[in-house]
Design a protein around this nucleic acid. Structure first.
Lengths: 340, 340
DNA sequence: GAAAATTCTGCACGCGGGTGCATCACAGTT
DNA sequence: AACTGTGATGCACCCGCGTGCAGAATTTTC
């Protein structure tokens, strides 16, 4: 029993073995495994039975050598601090697998690492490289041009302006309009915006939309905007605290709109644990993403849920498209809870 | 620019192209790319320069066809509800990549799906399949025996009794002894244990260790043990609430030890939001894993950190071992915060 | 019932590179 | 100057399957 796993069968079973057993040629075996293969029902049955008893499964890495598609997509992630990434990974791996794709998970260690990360993906002949909520894409795009094996570059949960990448994301503009209107309707007067790192490559329109809608309603008033060093709980807390601590009761904001839930939770930690204030009575907070913990009574965060499932389905559609595919922008859902 | 990505170069550059440019044979090119290749410094330099200008990178899926190793490992995950998985994925993908391995992320949708999940992995000729904190492994082990292409089956962050799998995990026994002693030292008298699903295949020794240590100190007293339906925030909360709600101030536990942080947070939500009690004054709570949010003041959870980095390094070592490798049990670190 | 239109089926060749061995060049020996 | 040992290099063959096409087996048509 012990070594069955190691040396159960010296060589793995190939299409030839199945062909021999079924009394057909290797190519007929291959046809039996393609849904569109022109093959008689009889021999397909024979082949499938032989494959079953032999435990044969086609070798995809060999298959991708001959054909020009591997049914493999690389998921490039650069920020594992955000629990929302786990939601995305779950949905993407599930839906991609159901559509017949394998997923290669590549950890981008930093901006300088991006080209190499893409390279390792291209070495596996991926059908597409998907940047998941990545902050930088311009440099990556250029290396993608170099790595000829990357056939498609897809930006997921972000909007890329590059003409040769496909973006699939949530409709940030509509979303943030809704959030801002809600904040306006609740009568808040001194808003503040807590954004992520202030890099020009960030392609979110949340901040801009908020400022636009707010200013339209309150001409002349310019909300404060601060940028956290990273999208992490600790940085969100530090950043919010550093800003709020210097303000008096009258000058401090009465609502903080945050670029995502993690920053929002950090801000809530600062407000409650550090400043000993209450949410939402003293300062209200909104987030973005609706990560699982946002629903916990410990935060009870008003936030906006991205349509991850629909976005993943759109991704599958793009993968199936041969030519130049269209990007997709999908509406999410505003989730009102107690924090604002 | 737009279509460079699509059709930049009709065919990708192969070792032959590099060989032609460097004036050597294809095999010399291959040697230049292996660290141990017997090749003269001069021709290696020529080859590398040619490869550089041509933008050549060896094709790993072709390489894995010829050799018997693919430098690819499959990560099988069945529970994306736990943020701790994200920590594991980050560490594993990082360290595996640094060691030259690619990672295939496979979402196991449920217990019945496990065999098929393993199959899809084996179709890519993975060097190993790693079960990450998976609840079931016995059934999987059997299918692994069937799927001859899976050369190694590794159980990560769990202990599997199967002789033909390699387990890499945290020393649960020592860990839980430490947690229990801490609880004892703090003078708690009516403990309760909140465990995950009660399946026999769960290979954690936390519950058993807690009961053993506690009973040794308090002979005769048998702590209550309840099982949540899943390792999710909501189930932890529901389960804890259902149990606690029926108890009076005198009979309810004064400390709840939870099998992981997510359950602990769920329990804290039940205690504070539902029962309007305080943590730790009314009921203390401990977790396990030390997920990032455990450090937030909103939970401030006393917990135990698994040595993920060391575990990932141990995994790399096992992958490099050709014969039957040894499992590894590593010590973690007890993290005392305010919740207990 | 024969000819024509359709399936089926088999095959040569290729994908990009690995393995093991045979060959070759060059340095050191006698 | 002929000889040997060692490292460098080239080559045949293989990995497991896809593609495109030609030949065989059916089915359809008149």
């Amino acid at each position: 029993m012990t070594d069955q796993l190691q040396s159960g069968s010296p060589k793995s079973v190939t299409a030839d073995d199945v062909a021999a057993m079924a009394g057909v040629s290797r190519w007929t075996v291959a046809r039996a495994f393609k849904k569109a293969g022109s093959i008689s029902a009889k021999s397909r049955k024979r082949v499938m039975e032989a494959a079953e008893t032999l435990g044969y499964v086609p070798d995809l890495s060999a298959a991708s050598l001959g054909s020009d598609r591997s049914n493999l997509v690389a998921l490039l992630v650069d920020d594992f601090d955000n629990p929302h990434k786990l939601v995305m990974l779950e949905r993407l791996t599930r839906i991609l697998r159901e559509a017949g794709y394998g997923t290669l998970l590549v950890n981008m260690l930093g901006e300088k690492d991006a080209p190499e990360a893409l390279l390792t993906a291209s070495q596996r002949r991926v059908d597409a490289a998907v940047l998941i909520g990545t902050q930088f894409d311009e440099g990556i795009r250029r290396t993608a041009l170099g790595a000829r094996r990357v056939k498609k570059l897809i930006v997921f949960a972000r909007m890329s302006p590059s003409p040769d990448t496909v973006s699939i994301g949530c409709d940030d503009v509509t979303a943030m309009e809704e959030v801002t209107r809600h904040v306006l309707a609740r009568g808040y007067r001194r808003p503040m915006y807590l954004a992520g790192p202030d890099t020009e490559s960030t392609r979110l329109f949340r901040k801009e939309t908020f400022l636009r809608v707010w200013s339209a309603e309150h001409p002349g008033s310019v909300p404060a905007v601060i940028h956290a060093r990273s999208y992490s709980l600790a940085d969100g807390r530090d950043c919010a605290l550093a800003f709020l601590r210097r303000l008096s009761r009258d000058t401090r904001p009465d609502v903080i709109l945050c670029e995502n839930d993690v920053l929002a939770m950090g801000a809530m930690d600062a407000i409650r644990a550090d400043l000993k204030l209450r949410v939402p009575q003293d300062i209200a907070v909104t987030g973005f993403d609706d990560i699982p913990l946002a629903a916990s009574p410990a935060y009870d965060l008003t936030t906006y849920r991205q349509p991850i499932t629909e976005m993943a389905q759109a991704l599958v559609r793009v993968l199936g498209t041969d030519g130049t595919a269209q990007g997709t922008i999908l509406p999410g859902r505003f989730v009102i809870r107690g924090s604002a």
